[in-house]
Design a binder for these strands. Structure first.
Lengths: 199, 199
DNA sequence: GTCTATATTCTGATAGAC
DNA sequence: GTCTATCAGAATATAGAC
């Protein structure tokens, strides 16, 4: 039996977050007003404050959820060969980020709008994600599969390159997502000095 | 002889642009008020409007100046070997962007705050810069020096990777700028399938 | 839980004195 | 060219009715 009255705490909360995600991504956190979010959801501005203490909390929750989801999904298996782990990481990063462009955009662009303690929290999560790739590179170097000058620099280079896909790739264009993942994997494989085609 | 009165049109204008650059980069265009800019310069808010018709013009002028400077500085010589041109491009991009982090940040982050015709103008300039790299890759493929699956995709991948340096590199840290340029050049050279060390 | 109404502060931009 | 003063509107957040 559906609810019958004006009580919608189970549905309004998610809708507020969804509206904030879309609007923050399109116009930027500072440019979006609480009234705009409320209008998108179909409630009055005052009603938002039943779900979030303030605008800043709305932003940091979106960013934290995104980073936590990312970390839960990445699933690196350190028993596999480094080159296999690296290929999985490259394809995963492109695919995961492609599915949530708004969250990715916010997570990378709105860091400067976070208050210091919130910034520190999100940065810790980001560094943890970077650590996944760095450990793969370290493992490959230890086995002699990769020839990388600096694992940290290479980590940043690879992640910047992969995240950049979101700025130009759109489904239905000249290239399929699979093909894009193939091309980036080829580039990354070469970058780390793993020229062999085998495992 | 120095000027003696309250007339400072030759100095206030640049100071306004400098203040806007710093503040927009730090807090974001939408989050910065004209009063904040005026305070940084040391004038009242109304005085700003002797130098700019509105806030939007201030933003687009900063972005246009940056892109025009970038295009004037890139200087590709198509008589040189593609691998030489590519190395110069990589080192140039990192060096140029390192010297003006605020302008780079604004040019990449505030596109969504541009009105449509301003956005179109800046995008044209950006595509022109990307074209410089794309032509280098095309030339290298035509000569068989590079083995690149897709020149456009590779262009975007390389530029994203190189621009990403600004997010982590700071002078005086573990690595010198020269060393960073060396490492990125090695990665790019491998990415495009140019494994030989000679010209 | 949502509403209306409002307190308070800030916004971009303009007018007119000097 | 810069100032003070101001307009008209929008911002975040809160109070209290229902």
């Amino acid at each position: 039996m559906a609810r019958t009255t004006g009580s919608h705490s189970d549905i309004t909360g998610p809708r507020i977050r969804a509206a904030a995600l879309t609007l923050f991504a399109r116009y930027g956190f500072a440019a979006v007003s609480m009234r705009q979010i409320a209008k998108e959801v179909g409630v009055q501005a005052g009603a938002l404050y039943n779900y979030t203490p303030d605008k800043q909390s709305l932003l940091v929750e979106l960013m934290r959820d995104h980073m936590v989801e990312l970390l839960a999904a990445v699933q690196d298996d350190d028993r596999a060969a480094p080159v296999v782990r690296l290929e999985r990481f490259v394809r995963f990063h492109i695919g995961f980020h492609h599915e949530r462009p708004d969250a990715v955009f916010i997570a990378y662009m709105e860091l400067r709008n976070l208050e210091p303690e919130n910034f520190a929290e999100i940065e810790t999560l980001r560094r943890r994600y970077e650590g996944v790739l760095e450990r793969i590179l370290d493992a490959g170097m230890a086995r002699g599969d990769f020839a990388v000058a600096d694992a940290k620099v290479t980590t940043w280079a690879v992640i910047a390159m992969l995240t950049g896909v979101n700025t130009w790739f759109r489904s239905g264009g000249r290239l399929s997502l699979d093909r894009v993942q193939d091309q980036y994997w080829q580039m990354v494989r070469r970058m780390v000095g793993s020229v062999g085609g085998s495992v």
